Amino acid sequence: MMDASSVARLLMLAGLLLLVLGGLLWASTPFINWGRLPGDLSFSTESTRIYVPLGTMIVASIILTLLLNLLLRMLR
C-alpha cells in the first residue's frame, strides 16, 4: 500500500504531465488543425449538429500509445 507522500508525488507528476501535454497540444495548433482532420465526421440539420472526431481520436490514440511505450521503456 502507498503512503500519503507517495500518492501526493504521483498526483503532482500526473498534473505536471497533463500540463506538458496540454502545452504541446496548444503549441501544435498552428501546424495541426486538431478537430478538423480527415476522417472527422460532422452532420447537421436545422436544429441538430453532430460531430464525431474519428480521425482526431485515431491520431491521438497513436500518439499516446507511442508516448506511453516510450515512457515504459525508459522506466525499465
Results as ranks from 00 to 15, higher is better:
residue 2 M to F: 08
residue 8 A to N: 05
residue 8 A to C: 07
residue 9 R to L: 13
residue 9 R to S: 10
residue 10 L to Q: 14
residue 11 L to G: 06
residue 12 M to T: 12
residue 13 L to V: 10
residue 13 L to C: 10
residue 14 A to K: 08
residue 15 G to S: 14
residue 15 G to C: 12
residue 15 G to M: 14
residue 16 L to E: 05
residue 16 L to G: 06
residue 17 L to R: 08
residue 17 L to C: 07
residue 18 L to W: 07
residue 19 L to G: 09
residue 20 V to S: 10
residue 21 L to Q: 12
residue 21 L to E: 12
residue 22 G to F: 10
residue 22 G to P: 03
residue 22 G to T: 10
residue 22 G to K: 01
residue 23 G to Y: 07
residue 24 L to G: 14
residue 24 L to Q: 08
residue 27 A to T: 06
residue 27 A to P: 02
residue 27 A to L: 15
residue 28 S to D: 05
residue 28 S to K: 06
residue 30 P to R: 07
residue 32 I to L: 14
residue 33 N to Y: 01
residue 35 G to V: 08
residue 36 R to E: 07
residue 37 L to M: 06
residue 38 P to Q: 05
residue 38 P to T: 06
residue 38 P to A: 00
residue 38 P to S: 03
residue 39 G to F: 00
residue 39 G to D: 01
residue 40 D to P: 00
residue 41 L to Y: 04
residue 43 F to K: 02
residue 43 F to P: 03
residue 46 E to W: 04
residue 47 S to P: 02
residue 47 S to Y: 11
residue 48 T to S: 06
residue 48 T to W: 13
residue 48 T to D: 06
residue 49 R to C: 00
residue 50 I to P: 02
residue 51 Y to E: 11
residue 51 Y to P: 01
residue 51 Y to W: 14
residue 52 V to Y: 10
residue 53 P to N: 02
residue 54 L to F: 07
residue 55 G to Y: 00
residue 56 T to K: 03
residue 57 M to F: 08
residue 57 M to I: 10
residue 57 M to R: 09
residue 59 V to R: 01
residue 59 V to E: 01
residue 60 A to G: 11
residue 61 S to N: 08
residue 61 S to V: 02
residue 62 I to E: 07
residue 63 I to F: 11
residue 63 I to G: 04
residue 64 L to Q: 03
residue 64 L to V: 15
residue 64 L to R: 04
residue 65 T to H: 14
residue 65 T to F: 12
residue 65 T to L: 15
residue 65 T to V: 09
residue 67 L to T: 09
residue 69 N to A: 08
residue 70 L to I: 14
residue 70 L to K: 10
residue 71 L to C: 08
residue 71 L to V: 11
residue 72 L to N: 13
residue 72 L to D: 09
residue 74 M to V: 11
residue 74 M to P: 02
residue 75 L to Y: 03
residue 75 L to P: 03
